[in-house]
Design a binder for these strands. Structure first.
Lengths: 247, 247
DNA sequence: GCATCGGCTTGATCCATGTCAACCGAAAAT
DNA sequence: ATTTTCGGTTGACATGGATCAAGCCGATGC
């Protein structure tokens, strides 16, 4: 009987416990590349799992930092607020991705993390992570890679905001989402957006009307089918071409 | 005789050697917060100092990554190139700042680092830095902070590119430079720009003409005096006000 | 079943910034 | 000293996306 959990005490206990070692996201998340024994040591560290309801904050800008968070399920956005009321979405995060890295710098969170659907996170006390990563080379190295990847991702967004036109930005955004859904075993061609047009616009440096118009345009061109938050990508290459050709 | 280097063999040797322990940037750079003994261990790691002439690359996108670099003197820019020829400056770096963090992620550099004036850097072999930071907690923690700070900085740039108007962007840029020069003991009100209008524009997501016009506008308003690359800030609060008031 | 509300779409118009072009001045090359 | 080159400034005009405004649709509440 494959895919069936044997009903003995020992196994059902380990399933209940929050554990990286039996998390199906482990290859996308912090545990990447760890041995079984190393994984078990990481399990000890991640004691808290927490549910965050849609719309609730995981943390707020200004709060003291002490943990980073791995998303076990669900979908988040992070945003930054300026004194004058302007704000900007700095990212959308999905299962297996880490939240809170910005807080290490000043020991206070510098942005807000808000659940866009009911979600579940694993809290990783940062000082314990540092301790453990002194002992497990693979963990240390992978954590450095994750931080670096975040920097590279941010450069990509800067590129997008600095040099791309509205439609290019939206195409890049859709292709990026598609690719991340694929990496999680979901369809690359069909998905639900968890965020509003306004949130997309904020992330892409556009107004919601412009985002809406670009969606309509893509639909007219036959690149995608949109119905509210439901997106089907009909012509990936069309979208890619749109991004790569300087007009 | 304070501030005088005694002329005995041992000390003059250690002065010649590249050494964090007698670098006047140590409080801005990687060695921040280390004890004297820890500093000396860091010295062993940083064996290579290298001069980079104005216009030369420190590294190029695509090259294998093995070191990060601390700027000992001079001024750099980093930029990213897209296949279609578009490029964007992702940052300007000055003495005491680190370059190359983006390369950790894929073990290849993802951007170009180019000297904007004759410069000197310390190469820090990354795998040895990881080894040492397993032993020196302060080093590990500070390095994490530096990476996190880079992420926070990038969020600031995303904010700037996503929500600010041309003049706000330039004001933010000047204030940021001013603040960083101040931290290095230079005047906060008077400095030379090392980069062209085009490079500023690329960084700020603007065309060089727009940058030029904004400089002229600031001068008309009496906020600054510009003469080519020489900038004097005459009214810091004027510039700040310009940034904070939503129009 | 009807009203309300939030999110979305679409149209008309406006404006900030891009584009194109001419010119200037400082610095480098001859 | 003269010419060339490069970076910078400024003006005239074009345009992509913002703004303002109306209306639609699906979900939620009464």
């Amino acid at each position: 009987m494959p895919n069936t959990i044997p009903l003995n005490q020992e196994i059902s206990l380990s399933v209940i416990k929050t554990a990286c070692s039996n998390c199906n996201l482990r290859e996308l998340c912090l545990p990447f590349g760890l041995s079984l024994e190393e994984l078990e040591r990481l399990d000890d560290l991640i004691s808290t799992r927490r549910r965050i309801k849609r719309g609730d904050h995981l943390y707020r800008a200004g709060e003291a930092f002490d943990s980073i968070y791995a998303i076990r399920s669900g979908f988040f956005k992070t945003d930054v607020l300026l004194e004058d009321g302007r704000d900007q979405v700095t990212g959308f995060q999905m299962a297996g991705e880490l939240l809170g890295l910005d807080g290490i710098s000043t020991e206070h969170h510098t942005c807000n993390a808000i659940a866009l659907e009911d979600s579940e996170i694993c809290a990783i006390p940062f000082s314990r992570l540092e301790t453990l990563s002194r002992e497990i080379h693979n963990l240390q190295h992978h954590f450095h890679k994750v931080m670096s990847r975040e920097i590279v991702r941010d450069h990509g967004v800067m590129m997008l905001l600095g040099t791309m036109r509205a439609e290019e930005r939206l195409a890049a955004f859709l292709l990026n989402l598609s690719q991340r859904f694929t990496a999680r075993g979901f369809s690359h061609a069909e998905f639900y957006l968890r965020m509003t047009r306004e949130e997309i616009g904020s992330y892409l440096g556009l107004k919601l009307e412009t985002v809406s118009r670009a969606f309509s345009k893509f639909q007219e061109e036959g690149y995608i089918a949109v119905q509210q938050k439901h997106i089907r990508i009909l012509n990936v290459n069309g979208l890619k071409a749109l991004m790569n050709h300087r007009v």
